[in-house]
Design a binder for these strands. Structure first.
Length: 271
DNA sequence: CCATATACCTGGCAGC
DNA sequence: TGCTGCCAGGTATATG
């Protein structure tokens, strides 16, 4: 479910409300991807200073250390004054004096991990290899082009890996490459400077637009306020195999790339 | 160092 | 119906 826009929309939906709250208790259900790393009871009394985002991770800054929260494939957060009885897929309740932050995650690829600091080994193990943030101005075209010149794999796989730029998942990778007119299988190193520039702009545009629209609701995205995506994001290619391209009416193709499905228009996107 | 495959887990759906 | 097989928005880790 969550790529950068969904994670950012989730962050915005509860960051202000949870800021300065004190942790009263932390309940964990079935195991998530990794253990918390410390006894849950050790977080009682901690104060939450704020919520940041790095790639698809949410960072809850505490007065001692921080919590790294990842939504995996199927996770969502809900923050409310009270929560109903936990269902079978609710695996965390962070109870504070401002409300309860609940993680709902059927597939349990998500995680909640405590680390003593962002620079600590625990945090860096997860954050250390992340590429640059695409939004907010640090994403530089020249540096992006220079990095891609060194990479021999298909551009779609480079985007998904997140080592050059973070936040682009399977949906937005297909969408950004369509916007840029680039075939997903094109070797990154073979992209010309102008095409990299188009891709750079497309990534920023597609992610920004999705954030503005409140996260796409292509499937079942729900923000921490409990709202679904406010608008259906009109996918140009994702999930549209066999349907006509919105630009040229060519039938959209799908293929497998590194065990993930990729969608593209064979006419609009050049190798 | 790089590129690729694998594993984790559950639910929904198409097809029989 | 009920079963089977396949697919799903991520990413650390192992392997070559």
């Amino acid at each position: 479910m969550p790529e950068l826009p969904e994670v950012e929309v989730t962050r915005r939906s509860f960051a202000d409300r949870i800021a300065s709250a004190h942790i009263l208790s932390l309940y964990l259900g079935k195991p998530l991807r990794w253990p918390l790393g410390v006894p849950a009871a050790s977080l009682v009394g901690r104060q939450i200073w704020g919520v940041r985002r790095r790639g698809k991770y949410l960072l809850l800054d505490l007065d001692q250390g921080l919590l790294l929260v990842h939504l995996g494939m199927s996770g969502s957060l809900n923050f409310a004054p009270e929560q109903p009885e936990a269902g079978p897929h609710d695996h965390m309740d962070l109870v504070t004096d401002r409300g309860v932050l609940r993680l709902h995650d059927p597939r349990r690829f998500g995680a909640v991990v405590w680390a003593p600091s962002e620079d600590s080994a625990q945090a860096q193990k997860l954050l250390g290899r992340l590429g640059v943030e695409p939004l907010g101005g640090q994403f530089d075209v020249t540096a992006f082009a220079r990095a891609l010149k060194k990479r021999q794999s298909a551009i779609k796989q480079i985007l998904l890996a997140g080592g050059e730029v973070v936040g682009v998942g399977n949906i937005y990778a297909s969408e950004a490459l369509f916007m840029a007119g680039i075939r997903p299988t094109t070797k990154a190193s073979r992209l010309t400077q102008p095409r990299v520039a188009r891709l750079h702009a497309a990534i920023i545009q597609v992610l920004n637009r999705a954030v503005e629209q409140g996260g796409s609701s292509l499937k079942d995205f729900v923000s921490a306020e409990g709202r679904t995506g406010y608008f259906q994001l009109e996918a140009a290619v994702y999930g549209r195999a066999g349907e006509p391209c919105r630009v040229c009416t060519t039938s959209i193709k799908s293929m497998l790339q590194g065990q993930r499905t990729t969608f593209y228009c064979p006419t609009c996107q050049k190798p």
